[in-house]
């Protein structure tokens, strides 16, 4: 372990950069001075559009791509200097790939990957059996992977990543290509891994509803830089605290005025929805008074919970890093 490093961080990334040289001789910066920490036992969402640099970052964490600058510690082990020890800290399921051997059975795959990580045969067997029972695949242990459904193959890939009992699990697009039922099973599994087994789980996904449901903290990467790194609730609150939706019966024809010009107004089936920013309680009451004066019946007033997708799109569109509420004042 580097410099007798004892922290509560599972992953410490400092000044990480990756510059690729392309065929034209023009260097391309895929990752630009990234600093990121993931606490032990945390479920961490790592988000970004295609080409943002997150897969390169993940691959640098896994020792598959050599960084141009910076350092990565996995449970205190330097990926560049202590490759063997660092690799024992992680189980990885990479995006869009099979990760496991389709001509082999589920059991053969588990034993192979257990041994590949240096686990003893008895430990691999014990863990393999427990994992397959937990994943409800014990009865299928002697079946060839090729014959499994996509969801079952993905569960076996996760079991293989876990068979050596690594403290950190890295999942690149774990629910990609899964149907609704398989996605639910996968989400339940990931929740159990974090809650019951205290694993640090790092998830990258374009399915932001999955990330919103599972992750405590998210970092958003854009054009090689981290533009947000916050607890999920804090991040949502930054964007969501002033948003309200007012539901009234009937339509507002002839009643629209200046106070409503910044609101999004939707009228359908005899009901009108007004959505927009109301900065303080005084303004809210004032607006409600106006509505009452017009004699339009009020149905409900509710603060809006922003969703991660909306926040993600705003952040990526504005391309600026945010740390607090002042940073988002000028957001579109």
């Amino acid at each position: 372990m580097s410099e007798n490093h004892i922290t509560n961080m599972a992953v410490e990334i400092s000044n990480l950069g990756k510059v690729y040289g392309n065929s034209n001789g023009n260097p391309f910066t895929a990752v630009d001075n990234v600093n990121l920490n993931v606490r032990r036992g945390e479920v961490f969402g790592f988000l970004g559009s295609n080409g943002a640099g997150k897969t390169t970052t993940i691959k640098m964490m896994c020792g598959l791509v050599t960084p141009t600058t910076g350092r990565i510690l996995l449970n205190g082990c330097d990926v560049a200097l202590e490759h063997g020890e660092a690799m024992r800290q992680i189980g990885v399921v990479l995006e869009g790939t099979r990760n496991i051997y389709w001509p082999l059975t589920a059991w053969q795959n588990l034993m192979y990957f257990g041994n590949l990580k240096g686990c003893s045969r008895s430990n691999s067997k014990e863990r393999g059996e427990a994992l397959l029972k937990e994943l409800e695949l014990w009865d299928r242990r002697n079946d060839i992977i090729r014959n499994f459904s996509r969801g079952m193959q993905q569960r076996i890939a996760i079991a293989c990543a876990l068979v050596a009992d690594p403290p950190i699990l890295i999942l690149d697009e774990p629910t990609l290509g899964l149907d609704v039922e398989a996605t639910q099973i996968m989400k339940a599994l990931l929740k159990r891994l974090a809650q019951d087994y205290k694993k640090t789980v790092i998830i990258t996904s374009h399915q932001l509803d999955v990330v919103q449901e599972l992750c405590e903290r998210v970092a958003i990467m854009h054009k090689g830089k981290i533009i947000a790194d916050k607890n999920l609730n804090d991040l949502l609150m930054l964007f969501g605290r002033d948003y309200y939706q007012i539901k009234i019966k009937g339509v507002l024809n002839g009643h629209k005025n200046d106070e409503l010009q910044d609101f999004i107004i939707k009228e359908e089936e005899g009901v009108t929805l007004l959505t927009g920013i109301i900065e303080n309680q005084a303004k809210l009451y004032s607006l409600l008074d106006k509505i009452r004066e017009k004699g339009v019946p009020l149905i409900s007033v509710s603060p809006l919970e922003p969703d991660l997708e909306e926040v993600f799109l705003k952040l990526v569109k504005n391309e600026r890093r945010i740390d607090n509420h002042d940073d988002i004042k000028n957001y579109a």
Binding site: C62, H83, G84, M87, I100
Partner: peptide, 18 residues
């Protein structure tokens, strides 16, 4: 193509031994 190559490179021992 099968996606298992990168898993092998994440072994704790040098890949030349694998």
């Amino acid at each position: 193509q099968a996606g298992t190559l990168e898993q092998i490179f994440m072994s704790p021992v040098p890949v030349s031994l694998v």
